[in-house]
Amino acid sequence: MSERRYEREDLADHGRALKGAGGVVGGLLIGGFVVATIAARIFGPAPSEGLEGALPTDVLRQLRVTLEAEWSARAVAWEWLDRGRGVARIPVSRAVELSLARGFPTRRDPPRHVTARTIR
């Protein structure tokens, strides 16, 4: 009887197969970059996204100036929010003066160390 030999692996030379697969993948990547570069040259750069691309720069500058003027006007304004409860909006500089004059609240109890046992 003749001795039969069967194939024990799917591919006898794994190294050569990996090199071939790497070459195919590398070729596809390089080809993709080449096509993208050519398309960018032909069709021009991609449009910018976001607010800066949608509005002209001078409109954005004017909007910023308007908002900053409104915010600075509100920062120095006095107005009642709830006159019945005595809640008013006061300028930031006056609030700082009052806080420094009255002092800040302090803790009466000494702070406890936080450990895994105290957290529940």
Rank of each mutant, 00 (worst) to 15 (best):
V65E: 10
G53H: 03
G15M: 13
A75Y: 06
R74K: 12
S72N: 14
E9N: 13
A46P: 01
G26Y: 09
E52G: 09
L60D: 01
G50D: 01
T57C: 01
A40C: 06
G32Y: 11
E68S: 11
S72Q: 13
G23E: 12
T66K: 09
L63A: 14
A12Q: 13
L81Q: 04
R61I: 15
G22Y: 11
G50W: 02
D10I: 10
G32R: 12
L29F: 13
L81H: 04
E70L: 11
L60E: 05
W71T: 06
A40W: 05
R16D: 08
Q62W: 09
A77Y: 02
E52Q: 08
F43V: 00
V59W: 03
R41F: 14
R16G: 01
A12H: 12
E49T: 11
E68L: 14
R16W: 07
L29K: 14
G15Q: 15
L11W: 12
L51M: 10
A40S: 13
G23H: 05
F43P: 01
A54W: 04
L18G: 02
V65G: 02
G27V: 01
L11I: 15
V76G: 01
A69K: 08
K19C: 09
A21K: 15
A73V: 01
E68D: 12
R64S: 02
A12N: 13
A36T: 02
A40E: 06
A21E: 15
G31R: 07
F33N: 11
R74S: 06
E70P: 02
G26D: 05
A75E: 15
G26L: 12
L55G: 00
L67I: 06
E70H: 06
L81E: 01
A12L: 13
V65M: 12
A36R: 05
E68Y: 08
P45C: 03
G22A: 15
G15F: 11
E52F: 08
E79L: 05
W78K: 03
S72L: 10
L67F: 02
V35W: 12
G31K: 09
R64W: 02
R74M: 07
G23K: 10
G15T: 09
G26E: 09
E52R: 10
A36M: 10
A12G: 09
E79K: 06
I30Q: 08
P47S: 13
L81R: 07
R41K: 12
G23P: 00
W71S: 09
T66E: 14
E52N: 08
A36E: 03
A36C: 05
F43L: 11
L63R: 06
L55V: 03
I30S: 11
V35C: 05
G44A: 08
A39Y: 01
